[in-house]
Simulated scan of single mutants.
Amino acid sequence: MQAEPRPRGHRPREPLGAGRSLSGGRSGVGRPLIDPRFGERRMAARRHESRRRLRAVAIVAGVVTLGIGGVALLHSSVLAVGTVQVTGVSHTSRASVRSAAQLSRLMIDVEGSRAARRIERLPWVADARIERHWPSRVQISVVERQPVAVVSRRGAGAGTASGGGSNWTLVDRSARVLADVPQPPPGLVVLSGVGDPGAPGTRLEQGAGPALDAVVDLAPSLAQRVATVNAVGVGDLEMVLRPVPGAPEPIAPSGSPPAVTGHPGPRPAPVTSTGATVVLGGTDQLDAKLQALALLVNQADLAGVRSVDLRVPQSPALTRG
Protein backbone atom coordinates (compact mmCIF):
# COMPACT_ATOMS: atom_id res chain seq x y z
CA MET A 1 0.00 0.00 0.00
CA GLN A 2 1.44 3.28 -1.07
CA ALA A 3 1.91 6.02 1.64
CA GLU A 4 0.05 9.29 1.25
CA PRO A 5 2.19 12.24 0.25
CA ARG A 6 3.02 14.65 3.17
CA PRO A 7 2.41 18.36 2.84
CA ARG A 8 5.48 20.50 2.35
CA GLY A 9 6.95 21.80 5.64
CA HIS A 10 5.25 19.09 7.69
CA ARG A 11 7.25 17.67 10.59
CA PRO A 12 6.39 14.41 12.16
CA ARG A 13 4.89 14.72 15.68
CA GLU A 14 7.22 13.69 18.42
CA PRO A 15 5.89 11.78 21.35
CA LEU A 16 5.74 13.39 24.80
CA GLY A 17 8.84 12.88 26.89
CA ALA A 18 11.17 12.99 23.91
CA GLY A 19 12.76 16.32 24.80
CA ARG A 20 9.47 18.28 24.97
CA SER A 21 7.49 19.63 27.84
CA LEU A 22 3.77 20.14 28.25
CA SER A 23 4.21 23.89 27.63
CA GLY A 24 5.50 23.19 24.18
CA GLY A 25 9.15 24.18 24.87
CA ARG A 26 12.19 22.04 25.12
CA SER A 27 13.41 20.95 28.55
CA GLY A 28 17.11 20.81 29.19
CA VAL A 29 18.05 21.26 25.58
CA GLY A 30 17.95 24.15 23.16
CA ARG A 31 17.21 27.81 23.98
CA PRO A 32 16.35 28.71 27.66
CA LEU A 33 12.94 30.09 28.58
CA ILE A 34 14.36 33.58 29.93
CA ASP A 35 17.01 35.61 28.18
CA PRO A 36 20.07 35.90 30.55
CA ARG A 37 20.40 39.59 29.79
CA PHE A 38 17.12 40.28 31.56
CA GLY A 39 18.45 38.71 34.73
CA GLU A 40 21.65 40.72 34.56
CA ARG A 41 19.74 43.95 34.17
CA ARG A 42 17.52 43.04 37.11
CA MET A 43 20.54 42.38 39.34
CA ALA A 44 22.18 45.65 38.23
CA ALA A 45 19.01 47.58 39.10
CA ARG A 46 18.90 45.96 42.55
CA ARG A 47 22.54 46.83 43.21
CA HIS A 48 21.93 50.46 42.12
CA GLU A 49 18.90 50.75 44.43
CA SER A 50 20.92 49.36 47.33
CA ARG A 51 23.71 51.87 46.74
CA ARG A 52 21.17 54.72 46.56
CA ARG A 53 19.63 53.69 49.87
CA LEU A 54 23.04 53.47 51.51
CA ARG A 55 23.89 57.00 50.31
CA ALA A 56 20.60 58.35 51.70
CA VAL A 57 21.24 56.70 55.07
CA ALA A 58 24.78 58.11 55.14
CA ILE A 59 23.53 61.64 54.36
CA VAL A 60 20.87 61.50 57.10
CA ALA A 61 23.41 60.19 59.59
CA GLY A 62 25.83 62.97 58.63
CA VAL A 63 23.17 65.68 59.06
CA VAL A 64 22.16 64.32 62.46
CA THR A 65 25.78 64.15 63.55
CA LEU A 66 26.44 67.72 62.41
CA GLY A 67 23.27 68.94 64.17
CA ILE A 68 24.23 67.29 67.44
CA GLY A 69 27.75 68.67 67.13
CA GLY A 70 26.45 72.17 66.36
CA VAL A 71 24.11 72.18 69.35
CA ALA A 72 26.91 70.94 71.57
CA LEU A 73 29.20 73.68 70.24
CA LEU A 74 26.61 76.44 70.78
CA HIS A 75 26.20 75.35 74.40
CA SER A 76 29.88 74.97 75.11
CA SER A 77 32.27 77.48 76.66
CA VAL A 78 33.78 78.08 73.22
CA LEU A 79 30.84 80.41 72.40
CA ALA A 80 30.43 82.00 75.83
CA VAL A 81 29.83 85.74 76.30
CA GLY A 82 33.26 87.33 76.55
CA THR A 83 32.79 91.10 76.18
CA VAL A 84 29.77 93.29 77.00
CA GLN A 85 30.08 96.75 75.43
CA VAL A 86 27.78 99.54 76.69
CA THR A 87 27.35 102.75 74.68
CA GLY A 88 25.23 105.90 74.98
CA VAL A 89 25.36 106.39 78.75
CA SER A 90 26.41 109.51 80.63
CA HIS A 91 24.18 109.57 83.73
CA THR A 92 23.97 105.78 84.12
CA SER A 93 27.00 103.68 84.99
CA ARG A 94 27.99 100.87 82.65
CA ALA A 95 28.16 98.51 85.60
CA SER A 96 24.51 99.17 86.48
CA VAL A 97 23.49 98.56 82.85
CA ARG A 98 25.34 95.22 82.77
CA SER A 99 23.84 94.26 86.11
CA ALA A 100 20.29 95.15 85.02
CA ALA A 101 20.66 93.24 81.74
CA GLN A 102 21.24 89.91 83.53
CA LEU A 103 22.80 88.42 80.41
CA SER A 104 23.18 84.66 80.14
CA ARG A 105 26.64 83.12 80.18
CA LEU A 106 26.29 81.66 76.67
CA MET A 107 25.80 83.67 73.49
CA ILE A 108 23.01 81.41 72.27
CA ASP A 109 21.00 82.07 75.45
CA VAL A 110 21.18 85.89 75.32
CA GLU A 111 17.57 87.16 75.05
CA GLY A 112 17.86 90.70 73.74
CA SER A 113 14.26 91.86 74.17
CA ARG A 114 13.95 90.75 77.79
CA ALA A 115 17.35 92.17 78.71
CA ALA A 116 16.41 95.49 77.07
CA ARG A 117 13.19 95.73 79.09
CA ARG A 118 15.12 95.16 82.30
CA ILE A 119 17.61 97.89 81.40
CA GLU A 120 14.79 100.32 80.60
CA ARG A 121 13.64 100.10 84.20
CA LEU A 122 16.70 102.15 85.19
CA PRO A 123 15.65 105.76 85.90
CA TRP A 124 17.64 107.45 83.13
CA VAL A 125 17.17 104.87 80.38
CA ALA A 126 14.58 105.63 77.70
CA ASP A 127 15.53 102.90 75.23
CA ALA A 128 17.94 99.97 75.14
CA ARG A 129 18.93 97.61 72.32
CA ILE A 130 20.92 94.37 72.55
CA GLU A 131 23.01 93.06 69.65
CA ARG A 132 25.04 89.83 69.51
CA HIS A 133 28.30 89.85 67.60
CA TRP A 134 29.57 86.31 67.26
CA PRO A 135 31.53 84.62 68.58
CA SER A 136 31.67 86.34 71.99
CA ARG A 137 30.71 90.06 72.00
CA VAL A 138 27.41 91.62 73.13
CA GLN A 139 26.71 95.31 72.51
CA ILE A 140 24.16 97.26 74.58
CA SER A 141 23.11 100.59 73.02
CA VAL A 142 21.34 102.96 75.42
CA VAL A 143 19.38 106.17 74.81
CA GLU A 144 19.05 108.24 77.97
CA ARG A 145 16.23 110.54 78.98
CA GLN A 146 16.64 114.31 79.00
CA PRO A 147 15.52 116.37 82.03
CA VAL A 148 13.11 119.20 81.24
CA ALA A 149 12.18 120.39 84.73
CA VAL A 150 13.10 120.14 88.38
CA VAL A 151 10.83 119.62 91.40
CA SER A 152 11.51 120.39 95.04
CA ARG A 153 11.22 117.50 97.48
CA ARG A 154 10.47 119.93 100.30
CA GLY A 155 7.65 121.80 98.58
CA ALA A 156 9.60 124.90 97.58
CA GLY A 157 7.24 127.83 97.26
CA ALA A 158 6.09 129.28 93.99
CA GLY A 159 8.63 131.46 92.32
CA THR A 160 11.58 130.16 94.36
CA ALA A 161 14.39 128.49 92.48
CA SER A 162 17.14 128.85 95.05
CA GLY A 163 18.98 125.76 96.13
CA GLY A 164 19.24 126.81 99.79
CA GLY A 165 20.20 123.24 100.81
CA SER A 166 16.92 121.89 99.45
CA ASN A 167 16.70 118.52 97.79
CA TRP A 168 15.62 118.81 94.16
CA THR A 169 14.57 116.14 91.67
CA LEU A 170 15.02 116.08 87.90
CA VAL A 171 12.09 114.92 85.75
CA ASP A 172 11.75 114.29 82.02
CA ARG A 173 8.91 115.13 79.62
CA SER A 174 7.00 111.95 80.52
CA ALA A 175 7.01 112.85 84.28
CA ARG A 176 9.66 110.19 84.95
CA VAL A 177 11.69 110.93 88.09
CA LEU A 178 15.35 110.77 87.07
CA ALA A 179 17.62 111.74 89.94
CA ASP A 180 18.06 113.98 92.96
CA VAL A 181 20.32 117.04 92.74
CA PRO A 182 21.42 119.53 95.41
CA GLN A 183 20.15 122.55 93.46
CA PRO A 184 18.33 123.23 90.18
CA PRO A 185 20.66 123.08 87.17
CA PRO A 186 20.83 126.34 85.20
CA GLY A 187 18.23 126.62 82.45
CA LEU A 188 15.74 124.10 83.83
CA VAL A 189 12.23 125.20 84.78
CA VAL A 190 11.05 124.58 88.33
CA LEU A 191 7.71 122.77 88.72
CA SER A 192 5.72 123.78 91.79
CA GLY A 193 2.45 122.52 93.25
CA VAL A 194 2.78 119.07 91.64
CA GLY A 195 3.24 117.05 94.81
CA ASP A 196 6.32 115.45 96.31
CA PRO A 197 8.19 113.29 93.77
CA GLY A 198 8.84 109.62 94.45
CA ALA A 199 12.05 107.66 94.12
CA PRO A 200 14.05 107.75 90.87
CA GLY A 201 12.37 105.54 88.30
CA THR A 202 8.83 106.42 89.42
CA ARG A 203 6.56 109.09 87.94
CA LEU A 204 5.09 112.31 89.25
CA GLU A 205 1.49 112.38 90.34
CA GLN A 206 -1.12 112.58 87.59
CA GLY A 207 -1.94 116.18 88.52
CA ALA A 208 1.51 117.24 87.34
CA GLY A 209 0.54 116.60 83.72
CA PRO A 210 -0.76 120.09 82.77
CA ALA A 211 2.21 121.92 84.30
CA LEU A 212 4.66 119.54 82.64
CA ASP A 213 2.90 119.90 79.30
CA ALA A 214 3.29 123.67 79.56
CA VAL A 215 7.04 123.25 80.14
CA VAL A 216 7.40 120.86 77.19
CA ASP A 217 5.47 123.24 74.90
CA LEU A 218 7.73 126.21 75.66
CA ALA A 219 9.77 127.43 72.71
CA PRO A 220 13.54 127.29 73.43
CA SER A 221 13.85 131.08 73.51
CA LEU A 222 10.89 131.38 75.90
CA ALA A 223 12.07 128.53 78.11
CA GLN A 224 15.17 130.58 78.91
CA ARG A 225 12.97 133.33 80.40
CA VAL A 226 10.63 131.09 82.42
CA ALA A 227 11.85 130.25 85.91
CA THR A 228 8.86 128.43 87.40
CA VAL A 229 5.60 126.81 86.35
CA ASN A 230 3.09 126.58 89.21
CA ALA A 231 0.07 124.30 89.33
CA VAL A 232 -2.57 126.45 91.04
CA GLY A 233 -5.88 124.99 92.10
CA VAL A 234 -7.44 122.44 89.78
CA GLY A 235 -5.96 122.67 86.30
CA ASP A 236 -4.88 126.33 86.52
CA LEU A 237 -1.32 127.38 85.77
CA GLU A 238 0.93 130.29 86.56
CA MET A 239 4.46 131.07 85.46
CA VAL A 240 7.17 133.16 87.03
CA LEU A 241 9.60 134.84 84.64
CA ARG A 242 13.26 135.33 85.33
CA PRO A 243 14.29 138.91 86.11
CA VAL A 244 14.53 141.24 83.13
CA PRO A 245 18.14 141.55 81.97
CA GLY A 246 19.66 144.72 83.40
CA ALA A 247 17.31 144.81 86.40
CA PRO A 248 18.80 145.09 89.88
CA GLU A 249 20.03 141.83 91.34
CA PRO A 250 17.46 140.24 93.66
CA ILE A 251 18.23 139.89 97.31
CA ALA A 252 19.39 136.39 98.19
CA PRO A 253 17.30 134.51 100.76
CA SER A 254 18.44 134.54 104.36
CA GLY A 255 20.88 131.80 105.23
CA SER A 256 22.54 131.78 101.81
CA PRO A 257 26.34 132.03 101.82
CA PRO A 258 27.74 135.38 100.64
CA ALA A 259 29.12 135.50 97.13
CA VAL A 260 32.91 135.41 96.90
CA THR A 261 34.51 137.05 93.90
CA GLY A 262 36.54 134.60 91.87
CA HIS A 263 35.30 131.59 93.82
CA PRO A 264 35.67 128.50 91.60
CA GLY A 265 32.68 126.68 93.05
CA PRO A 266 29.20 126.44 91.45
CA ARG A 267 27.18 129.61 91.36
CA PRO A 268 23.88 129.44 93.23
CA ALA A 269 20.78 129.35 91.03
CA PRO A 270 19.26 132.82 90.50
CA VAL A 271 16.38 133.98 92.66
CA THR A 272 13.37 134.69 90.45
CA SER A 273 10.88 136.06 92.95
CA THR A 274 11.31 139.51 91.40
CA GLY A 275 10.26 138.28 87.95
CA ALA A 276 6.77 138.89 86.61
CA THR A 277 4.02 136.40 87.38
CA VAL A 278 2.14 135.16 84.31
CA VAL A 279 -1.43 134.02 84.92
CA LEU A 280 -2.40 131.39 82.33
CA GLY A 281 -5.57 130.00 83.87
CA GLY A 282 -6.68 126.66 82.45
CA THR A 283 -4.92 124.65 79.79
CA ASP A 284 -7.45 125.61 77.12
CA GLN A 285 -5.83 127.61 74.30
CA LEU A 286 -2.45 126.86 75.86
CA ASP A 287 -0.61 127.23 72.55
CA ALA A 288 -2.16 130.66 71.96
CA LYS A 289 -1.28 131.76 75.50
CA LEU A 290 2.35 130.69 75.11
CA GLN A 291 2.58 132.42 71.74
CA ALA A 292 1.24 135.64 73.30
CA LEU A 293 3.76 135.33 76.13
CA ALA A 294 6.62 134.83 73.68
CA LEU A 295 5.52 137.95 71.80
CA LEU A 296 5.47 139.99 75.01
CA VAL A 297 8.86 138.72 76.16
CA ASN A 298 10.50 139.47 72.82
CA GLN A 299 8.87 142.81 72.03
CA ALA A 300 7.42 144.45 75.16
CA ASP A 301 9.25 146.28 77.90
CA LEU A 302 8.61 144.12 80.97
CA ALA A 303 10.80 146.14 83.32
CA GLY A 304 8.73 146.86 86.42
CA VAL A 305 5.89 144.55 85.33
CA ARG A 306 4.51 142.67 88.32
CA SER A 307 1.99 140.39 86.57
CA VAL A 308 0.77 139.42 83.11
CA ASP A 309 -2.77 138.07 82.71
CA LEU A 310 -3.05 135.76 79.68
CA ARG A 311 -6.29 134.01 80.52
CA VAL A 312 -7.58 135.70 77.36
CA PRO A 313 -4.57 135.39 75.07
CA GLN A 314 -5.95 137.89 72.55
CA SER A 315 -6.10 140.60 75.26
CA PRO A 316 -3.12 140.33 77.62
CA ALA A 317 -3.23 142.56 80.70
CA LEU A 318 -0.02 143.87 82.29
CA THR A 319 0.16 145.16 85.86
CA ARG A 320 3.10 147.27 86.92
CA GLY A 321 4.09 148.03 90.43
Rank of each mutant, 00 (worst) to 15 (best):
R8G: 08
R98D: 11
L295V: 14
V244C: 04
G112Y: 03
T272E: 09
K289C: 09
G209H: 05
R176S: 08
G70T: 15
V194R: 05
T283P: 05
G193T: 06
S174W: 11
P243F: 01
Q2N: 08
A45P: 04
V305G: 03
R46D: 05
R6P: 06
S50D: 09
A292N: 08
V171C: 08
A80C: 14
G69L: 15
P200A: 02
S166N: 10
G82Y: 09
V279Y: 01
E249M: 09
D180C: 10
M43F: 03
S96N: 15
D301V: 12
G304Q: 07
R94A: 13
A149W: 04
G265T: 09
G39K: 10
S99F: 10
M1H: 04
P270D: 02
G262A: 00
D109N: 14
Q314I: 13
P257D: 04
G195I: 09
L218Q: 12
Q139W: 08
P32N: 00
G209S: 08
D172W: 05
G207M: 09
S162G: 12
A175M: 13
A158N: 09
T87Q: 15
P182I: 08
D172C: 07
N298F: 07
V177K: 06
R306E: 03
S96P: 10
A214D: 02
G304R: 06
V29E: 02
S254F: 11
P253D: 01
G281W: 07
G262K: 01
E40D: 05
N167T: 13
S192T: 15
L318Q: 02
A126H: 02
P250A: 03
N298P: 11
V177F: 01
A175C: 12
R154S: 11
L237T: 03
A227D: 09
G69N: 13
I108K: 11
L79Q: 14
M1A: 05
L170S: 02
D301G: 12
D236P: 07
V278R: 00
W134T: 15
R129V: 14
V244Y: 01
L295F: 08
A61W: 07
P210V: 09
E120S: 10
G19W: 02
G246I: 00
Q206K: 06
P243A: 00
R320D: 01
G25M: 11
S162A: 13
R42T: 08
P36T: 00
V216I: 14
R52L: 15
Q146G: 10
R98P: 10
R129Q: 15
S23N: 07
A80P: 10
V148K: 11
W134N: 14
G9I: 05
D180Y: 06
A158W: 08
V226G: 06
D309Y: 00
L237H: 03
H10F: 05
A72H: 06
L188I: 13
L66K: 06
I59E: 06
P313L: 07
R41M: 03
I108T: 15
W134H: 14
V216H: 03
V60Q: 02
P220H: 12
